[in-house]
Design a protein around this nucleic acid. Structure first.
Lengths: 185, 185
DNA sequence: ACAATATAGCTTCCATGGAAAACACCGGGC
DNA sequence: GCCCGGTGTTTTCCATGGAAGCTATATTGT
């Protein structure tokens, strides 16, 4: 509207143009939003993972450590809770904990009351690591978001919040199991 | 601003609230945008994959068929081109083509001039399938986007386009290799 | 012409995560 | 008290894709 500067068409625009030629019967406009959203999400994930890697963490491990850290002292949670918070299956959580335990960042012990249950706890090293990693992570997110003005960021957040509310089944039966993960840190 | 209706805090808002308690030294505002963007992308991917599944296709296979279809008649491309278009490694393309070939949707033959090269072509069955699947896919995208008003969708597209332009390395050295894929169809 | 290098595709190995079965234990009904 | 269904965790098997190395062919430099 107010920015006559015509940027060269991006990847998504080029794909849309080809589809319009090959399938003129279809209105591919939604790709403009959905395609770019995916692309942005992919690029962001890539950048975020680069920071995790500095601490020798994969996205999954970072998520588990963050979920434990959010629990507050003494930084403990059951595997099932971790699965719910990180939106992956409990099987995936088992493996993530295996890796973190091997790295000395968490411990696993039997639950006191319910002998089926387990308690995963951050070790001092794990606590120290996730605090450093999360600080760096948030700094990174600020940088990535710096490409937008505060007003744009606020607008984007409002739009996404609204869409999300209408997209997400109200009852929390949301699938967290697609290729991309939850990963809010 | 103009919508006093206060929705209950969503998943991301709740996580932010906890972080503010545990790490009051950090400004976790960026999570509001980045976290929700990831969540929306995940949900969308999930819905999109559900449609692919109706045609017995995974996301990767759908992407390859779509890339071939976009090539226009006679619907042929070299594996390397397919890798570039779908933003995955050539190794991944080899496997996708293996699966598609097994399903009778594409054929693989030696290139005429360069004997290192190969030509992947849509079979009539593949052409027919991707045309049906893509039609359904676009219908699905329209539905998913129907949760936004046309004005909201336009705003969102503009914001994402701008962010993407500033996020994507100008020279096209973009990473397509993070957990989530490109998948513009 | 021939060696050195680059390129296209493929193969091997590895990492991650889902689905479902297997376990171990809890709790209720009888 | 004991069987039985339910629940928390782990295990097994499988699918997908990346990284790096391999093979065959093309290209370049001398």
């Amino acid at each position: 509207m107010e920015q006559p500067a015509q940027r060269p068409p991006d990847h998504v625009a080029r794909i849309q143009a080809v589809w319009r030629r090959e399938r003129p019967d279809l209105d591919v406009a939604p790709q403009g939003v959905i395609g770019r959203l995916h692309r942005v999400a992919t690029l962001l994930t890539h950048e975020l993972c680069a920071v995790y890697a500095r601490y020798d963490l994969g996205e999954g491990e970072f998520d588990v450590l963050a979920a434990l850290r959010r629990a507050g002292a003494p930084y403990e949670r059951a595997p099932g809770e971790l699965a719910a918070h990180t939106m992956v299956t409990t099987g995936a959580v088992t493996k993530r904990i295996d890796r973190l335990e091997r790295a000395g960042l968490v411990t696993r012990r039997a639950a006191a009351e319910d002998r089926r249950g387990r308690v995963v706890a951050l070790t001092p090293a794990g606590r120290e690591l996730i605090d450093r990693a999360f600080t760096d992570h948030i700094r990174n997110e600020h940088e990535l978001l710096a490409a937008l003005t505060p007003a744009e960021a606020a607008q984007l957040e409002a739009l996404l919040t609204g869409w999300l509310a209408r997209l997400e089944p109200a009852d929390g039966t949301a699938p967290g199991a697609a290729p991309g993960a939850a990963s809010t840190g």
